[in-house]
């Protein structure tokens, strides 16, 4: 049976997660891809206000297809995480310590995960239609001009993920 978690996910909960474990996440999560990551890191450098409070929040690397008039969201599977590797450590330092994406991460990323007691979760790539069924609310909260790369706040119910890198830096990847 998969473990059920509700966001935000604090350090104590993160430390209870082990590699390979399946988890169902419910609550609010935030979407961001490369372009939004760059803007967030720039905002931190320039000491600007961030579009959402990062502490213990969950970021999901996704650029969905546009929602049809009767839909909350379009297809919304994960994008490759490695493109976020150079931005993630800065965001982890500010508390954004739960990340969902697909594929392996760099050594530097894993070091930052250990330092910040973070966790990296895997969503299955190419399940855009199926995953869209877990999204109940979808609000654009920043960088709307980035289109599919804007930051959205999603309310999800039992969004399925697998623990891929735990707070000790153990990984599911060989």
């Amino acid at each position: 049976m998969a473990k059920k978690l509700t966001t935000p996910i604090n350090e104590e909960t993160r430390k209870s997660l082990t590699v390979g474990e399946e988890i169902l996440i419910s609550g609010y999560i935030y979407t961001a891809r490369d372009a939004a990551h760059k803007l967030l890191v720039d905002a931190i450098k320039n000491k600007e206000k961030l579009p959402f409070d990062l502490i213990d929040q969950v970021v999901y690397y996704v650029g969905p297809t546009p929602a049809k008039p009767n839909q909350v969201i379009g297809a919304c599977g994960p994008t490759s995480s490695y493109r976020m590797d150079k931005f993630s450590p800065e965001l982890m330092k500010r508390g954004l310590n739960v990340m969902i994406g697909k594929g392996p991460r760099s050594e530097e990323f894993i070091d930052a995960v250990k330092e910040n007691k973070a966790v990296y979760l895997l969503a299955i790539g190419g399940l855009g239609a199926k995953l869209s069924k877990t999204v109940k609310e979808n609000t654009t909260i920043a960088y709307e001009y980035l289109q599919s790369e804007a930051i959205h706040r999603l309310k999800v119910v039992e969004f399925p993920v697998i623990v891929a890198i735990d707070y000790l830096g153990n990984t599911i990847f060989q």
Binding site: G63, P64, T65, L127, A129, K133
Partner: peptide, 19 residues
């Protein structure tokens, strides 16, 4: 799940993948 996904996409008219 991949097989399930394509069924949902087909039946509910949702793209198979966001990319």
């Amino acid at each position: 799940r991949i097989i399930d996904n394509q069924e949902i996409a087909r039946n509910d008219d949702i793209p198979l993948c966001q990319d």
